[in-house]
Each structure stands twice: as C-alpha cells, then as structure tokens.
Amino acid sequence: MTTENKHAVQTQPRPETPQAVYMPEVDIMEDGENLTLLADLPGAEQQEVDLSVENGVLTIDAKPSLQAPEGYSLAGQEWDYGTFHRTFQLSDSVQVDKISANVRNGTLTVSIPKREEVRTRKIEIGK
C-alpha cells in the first residue's frame, strides 16, 4: 500500500476560498416527460451558480457572495455561509442538450427531459 492517496474525498475548503464547501440538499422527481432536480443553494444569485454536464456527469457549483451584515457582530450561530458542490451521474435515457435550469429563492431547479423512447405514452385501447 502506498501512502499516496489519489482518491481523497474533497471535504476540506478549497485553497482559493476560505469558505467551507457544502453538499447541497436535493430533491429528485420524475414524471412522464422530465426528471426534475431541485438543489438548495442559500444565498446564491443566478450568476453565482455554475451547472455543467460532461461525460454524463451533471455538476453543480455555487459560490454565493454573502456579506455579513455591516455594523453587527455575531452573537449566536447555527449555520454558516459557504460554497456548494455536488455531482450526479445521468442515465443514457435523458436528453443532455435539452437541459434547462433557473435559480429562485436560493434553490436551483434543473429540468432534464427524457428521451422520446422512454417517455410515458398513453395507449388508446381500440374498441
């Protein structure tokens, strides 16, 4: 066994930022036509969120530029500002080029359309 650890999980803050990196909480839903992924990124503006797909892996990155309120000092803390990072493996049955997304109230919504052949089709039963 070597001491080199190439597969260390990145849980430490990245060198370029002193903030902690959090894994956003997500909901994943599916209906007949789409997969919908909702990810909580508190504090993030739309332009502070990066979404990319490469080799079937969907990556979410967000770096909210939250500022502590001016003139105040922290008296009690239950949560902390930070950045967000999480990846998801997509299946072959989705249309990567048709993915759309938006950010609202600190939540990212990603719409992932399914391929035609895997969509729910209603079949009329002839009389």
Binding site: D40, P42, P69, Y72, S73, A75, G76, Q77, E78, W79
Partner: peptide, 26 residues
Amino acid sequence: ERYPLLNVWTSPEGLMVEADMPGVDP
C-alpha cells in the same frame, strides 16, 4: 433539528436574525 436554522447578530441598535431557508416562497 430546529427549522429554520438561525444566526443572531447584535449591534448597539438592536438585533439581526438571519434564517437559512432556501426554496421558501417569501
């Protein structure tokens, strides 16, 4: 756990309570 999680900030003028609640419609 509690929800929403809060941070409490103080100043001579008063308090600022900061709640983490992404996804909530105002």
